[in-house]
Amino acid sequence: MEVRTIKVFTTVDNINLHTQVVDMSMTYGQQFGPTYLDGADVTKIKPHNSHEGKTFYVLPNDDTLRVEAFEYYHTTDPSFLGRYMSALNHTKKWKYPQVNGLTSIKWADNNCYLATALLTLQQIELKFNPPALQDAYYRARAGEAANFCALILAYCNKTVGELGDVRETMSYLFQHANLDSCKRVLNVVCKTCGQQQTTLKGVEAVMYMGTLSYEQFKKGVQIPCTCGKQATKYLVQQESPFVMMSAPPAQYELKHGTFTCASEYTGNYQCGHYKHITSKETLYCIDGALLTKSSEYKGPITDVFYKENSYTTTIK
């Protein structure tokens, strides 16, 4: 009895394709271990004539594949690729409408935090270190965002349907971005203890939790000093293409032309909904596939993004 075979390709990165001759009487799992086709788990399936010449994702289970996976995804987590594939199996079914010149995501599976993050990423200057993220990001900007969303979920250790947080998501993504040249110098002034300067680099240099107003941050924000008295913390120097200011959701007025974009969060910790506000020729609110415009805006804002380049204080 002759062994019926077909020729397929296996890959971990969709760049390096490895030619395989597979036995049609055995499952993919018996031949390769966990195997995925377009995100779908085909591990328990036997090869079919229609699979001839198709590319299958496999887990990096030998040295060659491990090197290829690390170079593309910059992670050695053995569960990463499987999590990416199972997320992709959902995100490829989502709709990605162009809204006001940006790629958004039609609401499904509690994905409003991903839509808000995706919209924000198209408006701030950011370059990702893992080629996987950078490639998928370019495709997302062009309207094909399924891979990018699935990668975000995998890097953030999230599953489809789980509630997510924009600030946490951005923080994970910033860790995989090139923020080497970003720098922030802060000064804390206390009447009792004097003053202390701190220099922050990388992710810490672009994120701040405690106030939404970048102007206020430049002037000074009140913080408790270690001595128990009130101290003032203010920005001395900022070198970065953008800054992200966050605070627990509270009524906040966004003035046209003073910011790049913002995240609105309605609801409580267990259950809520994100919308995205962007400042173009007027203010726009993007909620999944829905767009509304207004000249002014007041609502429960939790993150505001500002364009920056270089700032030095005039406070002496």
Results as ranks from 00 to 15, higher is better:
K95I: 12
I45W: 15
L153A: 00
E253F: 01
K316D: 15
T282A: 12
K218R: 05
A87Y: 02
A154H: 00
C225W: 05
L235N: 00
E215M: 02
T260I: 15
C149N: 00
Q251F: 13
L17G: 03
E125C: 01
Y311L: 09
N129L: 03
V8Q: 01
H256S: 03
T232W: 09
K293M: 12
I277S: 01
G143Y: 08
P60S: 08
V206L: 01
E68F: 02
K127H: 11
L283C: 02
F148V: 04
I315H: 15
F128A: 03
H74F: 10
D62P: 06
A132D: 06
C149Q: 06
N89R: 12
L200C: 10
Y269W: 13
M209G: 05
L119S: 06
Y72Q: 11
L291H: 13
L121G: 02
T198P: 04
R4T: 14
K92A: 10
Y208S: 10
A150M: 05
Q195L: 14
T314R: 15
H51V: 03
R184S: 15
I223E: 09
V185N: 01
D38N: 12
E239C: 11
E296H: 15
D23H: 14
Q175C: 10
T226Q: 14
R83D: 08
D63F: 09
L121S: 04
D135A: 10
T232F: 08
A140Q: 04
K201T: 14
Y284V: 11
Y84M: 06
A145G: 08
Q98R: 14
L291W: 15
T312D: 06
F259K: 04
S171M: 14
H176F: 12
C227Y: 04
T260C: 13
Y172V: 13
Y208L: 01
F259I: 03
V243G: 04
P241I: 00
E264R: 06
Y234A: 03
E296P: 07
I6P: 09
E168Y: 06
M244E: 02
S79H: 13
K201L: 08
D38W: 12
K183D: 03
E308G: 02
G101E: 12
E2A: 12
D109P: 04
E125Q: 13
C285F: 05
Y28D: 10
R83F: 05
N178F: 00
V160C: 09
Y96T: 10
P241S: 10
A142T: 14
A146R: 05
E68H: 09
L151M: 11
G101V: 02
L17C: 15
L173C: 03
P300R: 14
K158D: 08
D63W: 07
F9C: 09
S295W: 12
T266M: 05
E162V: 00
M170A: 04
S181Q: 13
T260E: 01
C193F: 00
G228Q: 11
K106T: 13
K218L: 03
L81G: 01
F56M: 10
D109K: 04
T260D: 00
K298A: 14
V189R: 10
M209A: 15
N111G: 12
A40I: 09
I15D: 11
P248W: 06
A87I: 05
Q134A: 13
S279A: 04
K158V: 03
R141L: 13
V58L: 11
L179I: 01
E239Y: 03
T35G: 12
Y311F: 12
R184V: 09
E125N: 10
S25G: 12
V166R: 02
L212N: 01
K54F: 13
P241Y: 10
D77L: 06
V67F: 14
K233M: 15
Y72A: 15
N268Q: 07
T116W: 04
K127R: 10
A140L: 13
Y96R: 09
H256K: 09
H90A: 14
V160Q: 05
G272N: 00
V304Y: 00
T91G: 07
K298E: 05
K106W: 12
K7E: 12
V67P: 04
G33I: 08
F242W: 09
S263T: 10
Q251E: 13
T314Q: 14
L114V: 15
A132E: 06
V236T: 06
T103H: 08
T5N: 10
K280G: 13
I286G: 09
W107R: 01
K95G: 09
E71R: 09
C271N: 09
M170E: 01
A250F: 05
A289N: 11
E68I: 08
S213Q: 05
L65D: 08
S240T: 05
V160K: 09
Q98L: 15
T232M: 11
Q230L: 15
F128P: 04
V22S: 09
N61D: 08
T258E: 13
A142I: 12
M207V: 03
L173M: 14
P130K: 00
E162P: 07
